[in-house]
Design a protein around this nucleic acid. Structure first.
Lengths: 237, 237
DNA sequence: CCGCCGCCTTGACATAAGTCAAAACGGGAT
DNA sequence: ATCCCGTTTTGACTTATGTCAAGGCGGCGG
C-alpha cells in the first residue's frame, strides 16, 4: 500500500525524517495506510488513542465540538504533517476529533510500536520531542495571533506562510474551503470574505481560489509578520 | 541552595517526578537555583535557549511583545510547573520572553544535561514527552476557549480550574494581579472587571482577591465547562 | 495617621466582528 | 448547455469587547 512517493513523504516528516529505512519499515507495517472520503471521521474526541497519524495526501481538520453545536477548529494538517502525537503520551484518549476535509490518505502508526521504538533508540525520542515542540510552537503562534491580530492580519499571515521564500509578486492557491480557512483562523466565513476585500488595499487580489500578492513586503508590514524559518537540522551526536 | 521542600516540588513535577533522586541530583547540580524580584526578566525572546525552568516559588509569565507595544501573555506558571521545555528541541532560541511577576525562585536545568540524560534513560524521554504533551494540551484548551467562549465564561473556567475537586460553596484566592489574569485570558482589565460583575448572576462573588463560588454546578453549566476528571459518559447502548 | 501611587472599577463611547437573511456564484451531474 | 446544490458574497443590523478618561480604593512608607 505504501508507494515510493509515500515513503518519500514519510521521510520528509519531522517525526520520521531521521529514522532509517529499516526501522521505518517496522514502524509502518502492512495495513497502516487508510483512505478517507471527504467528510469522513478519522477519530472522535474521547476515543481511545491508539495511533499517531501522518498525512500522505489530502487534508485533515482537528476540531472540538462545543455544547452549542459550533465547532472550534484547532488545526488543519496536510501532506508531510503529523498529528495526534501528544495523545499517545497522556490520557490515552484523543482530546479532539479529526475529520478528512477531502479525499485523504493517512498512515497510522500504532503508538505502542512507536513507544517501544523510542525506548530502543534515543534518536527517535529526540525526533518525537522535536515534532511535539514544533506543534507546540505552532499553537503558540496561533494563540498569539488570535490575541493580537485582527481578522485581515490573520489572513495575511496565513497567506504569507503559504508562500515562504517566494518572490513577490506571487500567487497562492487556497488549499481548502474558505469556510474552513475561516474556522481555522478563528472567524466566520462572512468575516473572512469581507476581510479579503479589505486586503485589496495592500495589494492582495482574490479570484476564486487563486490569490495574488503584489508585494510581500507590503503585506508583511501590514500584518506585522516575521517569517518563521524551519530550523537547521540538529546534528549533535 | 535546594531545600528539602524544593526537592519535594521537583519530585512533584510531571517532568522529573519519575526520575530517581540520584539522577535528579545530577540534573539539578549546584548553582541552579535563581531568585528573581517582581518584574525581573528571566529571558527574552531571541536569547539562546540554554535552560529549562522549574518554578519553585512565585509566578512567571511567558509573553510576546507585539510591534504595537502591547504584550500577548501566552502562559503563567507557578510552583511545580515547568516552562521552556520546547525551546531546547528546536531552534535553540527562546520563542517568547519570560518575566517574574512577583518574588520568584526557579530551578534552571541546563538542557544539554537533560538531553544527554534523555539519551541515556528512555524513562526520562517518556517523562519529557509527557510534559510536553501536557503543555500542548493546555494550549489546545486555551485556544479553544479563546475561540468559543466569551469573557465571563473564560473567567469562570479559570476559577473552576483553580478549585478542582472542592465542594461548593468554595473560596478561591486569585493568585496574581487581575490585570495579568485579564491578559492571560485574552482580554483587557476593564473587560475582566465588568465580566466579574456579570458573573454575580450565577453566584460568583468577588471581594478583593477572594472569590466565592456559591454553586460549582451552576457556574460549570454557565461556562459549559466539563471538568477533566469526569469524561463524558457514553450513553449509546 | 496621613498621603501617595498603583491598581482596579466605572462610565461613555467607538468599532470589529458576529448574526441572520438573501442573492450571486460555481462546479458537477444530467 | 442547463439545473441544482453547496459555497461564498453582500447587506443591514446587533453585540461584545476595546478605548479613553475619571474617580475610588487600598496598601505602604513616611
Amino acid at each position: 500500500m505504501l508507494s515510493e512517493t509515500d515513503i518519500a513523504v514519510l521521510a520528509r516528516t519531522r517525526l520520521l525524517g531521521r529514522v532509517d529505512r529499516a526501522v521505518l519499515a517496522s514502524l509502518v507495517g502492512p495495513g497502516t495506510v487508510r483512505t478517507y472520503d471527504k467528510g469522513q471521521t478519522v477519530f472522535r474526541k474521547g476515543d481511545p488513542a491508539r495511533h499517531i497519524f501522518v498525512v500522505l495526501e489530502g487534508w485533515v481538520k482537528i476540531y472540538r465540538d462545543t455544547p452549542q453545536g459550533e465547532e472550534a477548529v484547532l488545526g488543519v494538517f496536510g501532506p508531510g504533517e503529523t498529528f495526534a502525537e501528544a495523545a499517545a503520551f497522556l490520557t490515552g484518549v484523543y482530546p479532539a476529533s479529526a475529520e478528512a476535509v477531502e479525499s485523504t490518505r493517512l498512515c497510522a502508526i500504532a503508538h505502542e510500536r512507536l513507544r517501544s521504538e523510542i525506548k530502543a533508540d534515543p534518536d527517535i525520542a529526540m525526533s518525537m520531542l522535536g515534532a511535539m515542540a514544533w506543534h507546540l510552537h505552532g499553537m503558540v503562534n496561533d494563540l498569539e495571533r488570535l490575541k493580537t491580530r485582527n481578522a485581515p492580519q490573520r489572513i495575511g499571515i496565513f497567506l504569507l506562510e503559504m508562500c515562504v521564500n517566494q518572490d513577490s509578486p506571487c500567487t497562492v492557491y487556497l488549499p481548502y474551503e474558505k469556510s474552513l480557512i475561516a474556522a481555522r483562523l478563528g472567524m466566520t466565513p462572512e468575516s473572512l470574505s469581507r476581510s479579503f476585500s479589505r486586503l485589496a488595499e495592500v495589494g492582495v487580489r482574490l479570484e476564486g481560489h487563486r490569490v495574488e500578492i503584489e508585494d510581500r513586503r507590503r503585506l508583511e508590514a501590514h500584518c506585522q509578520f516575521e517569517s518563521r524559518k524551519r530550523p537547521a537540522r540538529d546534528r549533535t551526536r
